[in-house]
Computed example of a mutant assay.
Amino acid sequence: MTLVATDLDRTLIYSRAAAGEHDGTDLYCVELYDGAPLSFMTERATALLSVLAGRITVLPTTTRTIAQFRRIALPGAPWRYAVTTNGGHILVDGKPDVCWHAQVETAAQAGGASLTEVERALRNRVDESWVDALRTADGLFCYAVVRSAAVPPDFLAEWSAWCAEIGWNASQQGRKIYTMPDVVCKSRAVAEVRRRLITDGTLPATAPLLAAGDGALDADLLAGADAAIRPRHGELHELAWTHPGLSITEGSGIRAGEEILDWFTQRSAID
């Protein structure tokens, strides 16, 4: 038996803008926002995920907040476990595990500056000429919605350096620049879910972990897996990020989502 932990946006699901070259004829909508289609998979990808989730344990693992995750009608649901808010929440049968969230909050408070301090510092460094909105996510971290082409060239490097000194980190994924406590990470939450699944007998102790993701916030998850895959696009691709046991898709955009699910299917069959 295998555990698959996978990022969602720009890994398995895509906006039309992120889908890349595609004629749109076989797109399946998996998310509506304000009544309009927002995120898609190919029809083949939806079939692959449905079959995979019926055969092994699949763990959706996303930086989205709980509310944002609940907007997605992901094939294979309902999920016994899901990780949201970059590891800040574990959902058990769709409900937040309050004990886990309390542990994360305690660790974040002990690990460095407060969210209020970081938000204040961020607001002092940005302006409306390139930032459309500043938001917080479930009281754990903040992010700026930016106009990518207008972001000052040195901003991310300088902001990242400031964050590193206080136990936080910064990364950009598409139009969002995330600012995150170091202890709020996907790998910690996935390890906790894996521990629970082994304890209750769902997984054997030797069960391998397979993972996928495209952004810097996925790096810890990919590095901690027994084997991992990333698409040929996104922040990690731009950074030329690699790691032992890492595979990279041949294609990019929404077709990479199909490749990732093919890879999960093949690897879980081998394992």
Rank of each mutant, 00 (worst) to 15 (best):
R255D: 15
E43S: 08
L52S: 02
L49G: 03
R195I: 10
P78I: 06
T61S: 07
T46G: 07
T136V: 09
A67N: 13
G94F: 04
S252Y: 07
S129V: 02
D220C: 15
F69Y: 14
P181C: 03
Q103E: 15
L38G: 12
R55D: 10
R16S: 06
A191W: 04
L32A: 10
A164D: 10
G111S: 07
F40T: 10
L246T: 01
V98S: 13
S187N: 14
H237E: 08
L52N: 01
G215V: 01
G257K: 00
G245T: 05
E105S: 01
E119W: 01
R55M: 08
D132Q: 02
D226V: 03
L236E: 13
F264A: 13
S39Q: 11
Y28A: 09
D262C: 05
F264Y: 14
V30Y: 00
H89A: 03
E250H: 11
A219P: 00
A67P: 08
E21I: 14
R195G: 03
V98Y: 06
E259N: 06
A161T: 11
T65E: 08
V126P: 13
A256N: 07
R80S: 03
L217C: 11
A137T: 00
Q109V: 09
L91T: 04
P181R: 02
H22N: 12
A73H: 08
T242G: 15
Y81R: 06
S247E: 03
A157C: 01
H233T: 06
T42A: 05
P75E: 06
I90Q: 05
A73P: 00
I260V: 13
P60W: 02
F141N: 11
T242I: 13
D182A: 13
R64Q: 14
R10A: 14
Y28I: 08
C29F: 02
L27Y: 04
P153C: 00
V83T: 15
E258S: 02
P204H: 15
K186Y: 12
G253D: 09
S268T: 07
L222P: 13
G87M: 00
L59E: 01
A269S: 12
V151R: 02
G251H: 11
I254V: 12
A149S: 11
V190I: 10
A149K: 11
A82F: 13
T202M: 09
D220F: 10
Q109Y: 05
S114D: 10
G24H: 04
D26F: 05
T179A: 11
T11E: 13
P208E: 04
A144M: 14
R71K: 15
R80C: 00
M41L: 08
R175K: 05
S247H: 07
T2M: 05
E117C: 02
A53N: 00
R123S: 07
L8E: 03
V92K: 15
P204C: 15
D26R: 00
A164R: 07
G167A: 01
L221R: 07
T249W: 01
H89K: 00
I90K: 09
R125G: 07
